[in-house]
Amino acid sequence: MDLELARQVLDHLRVGLILLDWEGRVISWNDWMHRHSSLELPAVKGQRLTEIFPEIQDDRLGWGIEEALRYRLSSVLAPALNPTPLPLYRKPIDRARNERMQQLIYVTPIHHSNCACLIQIYDLTAPRRRERRLRAQSSRLMRVSYQDPLTGVGNRRRFDQDLSQLFRQAKEGGRPLALLMIDVDHFKSYNDYFGHPAGDSCLIQVAHALQEDLRREGDRLARYGGEEFAVLLPDTDPKDACAIAERLRLAVARLALPHPPAPTGWVTVSIGVAAMIPDPNTLDYLLVAQADLALYSAKEAGRNRCFRYDPGSSRAAPCPAG
């Protein structure tokens, strides 16, 4: 390729090219550099890049050039860590607004008698903007995919993930983890009596009452399914778990939602409590099975009460009052 053709090709590239000599002085830069820096080659030729752009002196780009000249090592400068190392602008209006181009820069040593270093600059402004938009979207989707659409609390997916994470942490830290399984009493007859829209509204109010009453940061409420909710309580022993369960039961009772077909006449909940310090071989659903057993026993015993699983007897017993 003759020199004139090479020059034309380099000037048409949509990437910035800077060539430095062994002293770090500009030998050449292409038309892209001229367009985006507003500096023509004759004005910068023979000057060090640090003289043209003093701000890079003690910066990552300055070191990268130093490493290429002195050690013959290459560097990449990513926009996430160094968004705008050089004062380059996509359009004149961006310069007026002081909105710099986001840059991805490669610094590589060149083995030539006159030329020691090539710097390539890519304009990543548009891809970075797209990434930001995608990220915002993916965070929003992530949030939605873990949320129960009716009540706004965590959904089953959230619960499964929280359970496995908190269980692992409890194992590693030798700390207790408690689980409450909460079931709305006689919910089918509530639905039959008032209709499904009222049933939905009942679940929303119960979920809010439960959420309101959980004040500790790490406590996690999720809708387990149908009219069942689950609460994971990290660092909580059986005694405290029972106290919290009882508080939640009363919080729902205080809503005073009429429920004519129910024996009490009001919407109430039954709660099964289980807590353990898991040993290395225990699987997390053992905790769910224990809380389920306790919930079943609470319902058997007449509902609107809290039972807890007792590992000594492998049975459930009423939560101690208090």
């Binding site: 490493e67 050690y71 090592l73 290459s74 560097s75 990513a78 860590l81 040593p109």
Partner: peptide, 29 residues
Amino acid sequence: EAMCEIGNVILNACMSALADEFGVEFRGG
């Protein structure tokens, strides 16, 4: 690219330390 850069900084620093102490030159991609 950012992961690349973090690795780049660490690896270049190690190789330039070797280059300095050995009094030699490496070419790095």
